[in-house]
Amino acid sequence: MKALLIAGAVFAATVVSTGVQADDDCYEPVANWRPKSQLLQYLQSSGWQVMRIKVDDGCYEVEGVNPAGQRVEATFSPSTFESMGQEYEGDDDDEENEHERLAPSVDPQTSTPAQPPANSLINARPKVSVQ
C-alpha cells in the first residue's frame, strides 16, 4: 500500500513538473538574477545584435538579431542565461505584433486575414480603425 502511495506521489510530481516545464514563464528567485548588462555582454560576444532587453513573465526577453541573422524575440533565464525559446519574425503569433511595432496607427484590417468569427454576437469581422 505504502509503495502504491509513493508511486502515486512520484507520478503526480512528474505530471506537475512537466506542466511547469511546458510553461513559458521563469520562476527563479530574484536574488539569483544576474544584471541585464551581463546578458547584453554575453549576447554581443555570441554574435547577437541586441535592440532591447526587458523583463517579461520572470524572464529576460530580448529583441534583436540572432547570430544566424534572424530577427527574433528570445527569452532567457535571468540567472543562468539559458535560452528559454525564440519567436521568429513571421511566426503566426507574432505577425500582428510586428505590424503593431512598425505601424501602430494603420488599420489592422489590412494586416490580418479576414476570418469569420465563430461568435454568437456578430457574424462578420468588424470594421476597425485607430485614429
Binding site: 500582428e96 503593431e100 501602430p104 494603420v106 490580418t112 469569420p116 469581422r125 468588424p126 485607430v130
Partner: peptide, 9 residues
C-alpha cells in the same frame, strides 16, 4: 478568432 488586431498606443 478573426476578432483581433494591433494594440492601441
Amino acid at each position: 478568432d478573426g476578432l483581433t488586431g494591433a494594440s492601441v498606443q
